[in-house]
C-alpha cells in the first residue's frame, strides 16, 4: 500500500514539478542547451525491469531514476519480476510490444535476458543494461567490474597473508551461488590471483547460496578445522554477515582477515566499523545510480531512429576499511530517494 501511495505521490509531485519546470522555462533562461535538454526528456517513457525491487540496489536505482523522472518530466514504469526469470522474460517481451523510449534492465545473470535484449534491439527498442551485463550488447551498459573488485580483494588477502609478508598463507573462500555471474567472475579473479601466488593455500572453497545462515555454518566448521586461518574471501556482504558472525563466535575476529564486497549500504559500514569486515570493496549505489541517470539522459537526447554505438560506464569503486570510513561512505535508501 505504502508503495502505491508513493507512486501516486510521486506522480503528483512529478506533475507539480513538471508544471513549474515548464513555467520556469517560459520565464526562465535558455543557455542554448537547457531548453533542448528538457524537451528531449519530457513525455518520454522509460521502463525499468529490476531483479526485484525489494533488493537494496534495485531499490536504489529505482529511487534515483524516479527522482530524475520527477524532475525532468518523463514517465518511469517499474515491472518487477521478483527474482523470477521467466516473469522477467515475459515482462521484457511485453515491453517490446509497447515500444517505450528506453528499457532499463537489471540482468539476473549473463544468460537469461540475452536473447530478449537482442530481440528488443532488433525491434528498435533501446536497452540500457545495469549492474550485470548480458552476453549480448545493447545501447548501453552501466555496471560494475566484478572481476576487478574480486581481484582487489584477493590481492589484499595475498598482501596480508602471504608467507612473503609474514603470514602463513592459509586462506578460505566463501562462494555464493556457483552459477551466479558475480560469483563466477569473482571466483575467476580469485583463482587467477591464487594461481599467480602459489605460496597461498586455499583450505576451503565452499558455496553458501547467498544465504547468511548457510554461510555461518560453513564458516564455523572451516574456522574450527583450521584455527590458524589467515584470511577469508567473501563475495557479498549480505552473505558475509553470517561469515563474520561465525568468526566472531570462534573468537577469531581480528585474527582472520575478512575481505568482502557489496553495495555499501549503511549496514555494511556498521560491520566495517565493528571489525566484522577488515577490508571492503564498495560499489556505491548512490554513484552507480547517478551513472545510470547520466546514461539515460544521454540516450534520451539522441533521436529515436539514430543507431547508437554501444557504450558503457564502469563504476569506480571505493576500498573501505575501519580507518578510511567516513560518515558519508555508505548510503541509505532514504538518502537516495531524497537525492543525496
Amino acid at each position: 500500500m505504502r508503495k502505491l501511495i508513493n507512486i501516486i505521490g510521486g506522480a503528483a509531485i512529478a506533475l507539480g514539478i513538471g508544471m513549474t519546470a515548464v513555467k520556469a522555462q517560459d520565464a526562465g533562461f535558455d543557455d542554448g542547451m537547457s531548453t533542448k535538454f528538457y524537451e528531449s526528456m519530457k513525455g518520454k517513457k522509460v521502463v525499468f525491469v529490476p531483479i526485484s525491487i525489494g533488493m537494496d540496489i534495485a531499490a536504489g536505482f529505482a529511487a534515483g531514476m524516479q527522482r530524475m523522472a520527477d524532475q525532468y518530466g518523463f514517465q518511469l514504469q517499474i515491472r518487477d519480476p521478483n527474482w523470477n526469470v521467466d516473469q522477467g522474460v515475459q515482462a521484457i517481451t511485453q515491453i517490446i510490444s509497447e515500444k517505450p523510449d528506453l528499457v532499463v534492465i537489471q540482468n539476473v545473470d549473463m544468460q537469461a535476458y540475452a536473447r530478449v535484449i537482442k530481440q528488443a534491439m532488433e525491434a528498435g527498442v533501446r536497452v540500457l543494461q545495469v549492474n550485470v551485463k548480458a552476453t549480448s550488447n545493447s545501447t548501453a551498459h552501466v555496471g560494475i567490474d566484478w572481476y576487478k573488485n574480486a581481484e582487489t580483494n584477493a590481492l589484499k588477502l595475498v598482501e596480508k597473508c602471504s608467507p612473503k609478508n609474514g603470514g602463513n598463507g592459509k586462506i578460505a573462500a566463501l562462494e555464493g551461488t556457483p552459477n551466479n555471474p558475480t560469483n563466477f567472475i569473482g571466483m575467476k579473479a580469485f583463482n587467477d590471483v591464487m594461481a599467480a601466488h602459489p605460496e597461498m593455500t586455499v583450505v576451503s572453497d565452499q558455496a553458501a547460496d547467498w544465504d547468511a545462515s548457510k554461510a555461518h555454518s560453513v564458516v564455523s566448521t572451516v574456522v574450527r578445522q583450521s584455527p590458524d586461518l589467515c584470511g577469508y574471501f567473501g563475495l557479498w556482504d549480505g552473505q558475509d554477515s553470517g561469515m563474520a558472525a561465525a568468526i566472531r563466535e570462534a573468537g577469531l575476529t581480528g585474527k582472520v582477515f575478512v575481505v568482502s564486497q557489496g553495495a555499501g549500504e549503511k549496514a555494511a559500514c556498521e560491520k566495517i566499523a565493528d571489525g566484522s569486515y577488515d577490508f571492503y570493496v564498495s560499489y556505491n549505489i548512490r554513484e552507480l545510480s547517478k551513472h545510470i541517470n547520466d546514461a539515460i539522459a544521454v540516450i534520451l537526447q539522441r533521436p529515436a531512429d539514430e543507431t547508437l554505438q554501444p557504450f558503457a560506464i564502469y563504476l569506480t569503486t571505493q576500498n573501505l576499511t575501519k580507518d578510511t570510513l567516513t560518515p558519508s561512505s555508505c548510503w541509505t535508501l532514504d538518502e537516495i530517494k531524497r537525492g543525496y
Binding site: 555461518h216 554477515s241 553470517g242 563474520a244 558472525a245 549496514a267
Partner: peptide
Amino acid sequence: TLVGTMNTRV
C-alpha cells in the same frame, strides 16, 4: 540474531 540478518529470499 545468530547471523544479524534475515533474507526473505529463503
